[in-house]
């Protein structure tokens, strides 16, 4: 009994430390500023484990089942445009690549390209979503528009996130 309490305290501290470190890593992927884009105040949501429900509500089980362990959502503004970013930490780079392929099948209704496939964009119903992986990070960017410009914007944004994530490997 005397050993149990310190052990529990140590485990809680370790869990809190891991959570803090995980959040900090994701904030490096999606920092306060990305070029001319600024994160909207009070719109940042972080979740770990079942806490990912705060980001996806009922959809979160799809993410945790696929191997997402943590996620961070931010909304960015630049001039008259808004972009929603979600950076996910996954159990492994393999899990991240597999999840990207799943998303491709879901969105594009086709088998994903062979080879070094690491990003794609899908448009519909007023928005464009870019998906990408970098190491064990799975990244999504939602742009409010379906035009070619919106697609380029989404893909350009997600490439910056990929670069940021690559520095964490």
């Amino acid at each position: 009994m005397m050993l149990t309490r310190p052990l529990i305290a140590a485990l809680l501290l370790a869990a809190a430390g891991a959570s803090l470190a995980g959040r900090e890593d994701l904030l490096k992927v999606a920092p306060d500023r990305i070029n001319a884009w600024r994160a909207v105040a009070d719109a940042t949501v972080y979740g770990r484990g079942d806490g990912i429900v705060d980001i996806y509500n009922g959809g979160y089980e799809d993410y945790t089942r696929a191997g997402v362990t943590e996620a961070l959502r931010r909304m960015y503004a630049q001039g008259d445009r808004y972009v929603e970013v979600t950076a996910h930490t996954m159990t492994s780079s393999r899990a991240a690549r597999s999840f990207l392929a799943d998303r491709y099948r879901l969105e594009m209704k086709a088998a994903p390209p062979r080879g070094a496939f690491k990003r794609f964009a899908a448009s519909g119903s007023g928005s464009t979503t870019a998906y990408a992986v970098e190491g064990r990070y799975f990244l999504t960017v939602v742009v409010y528009g379906e035009s070619e410009a919106a697609r380029n914007q989404a893909l350009g944004f997600v490439k910056v996130l990929e670069q940021n994530a690559s520095r964490l490997r």
Partner: peptide
């Protein structure tokens, strides 16, 4: 109605 990727989407409508 949102047919896929709910509850938040974006998805097919």
């Amino acid at each position: 109605i949102l047919l896929t990727n709910g509850p938040k989407g974006p998805g097919e409508t």
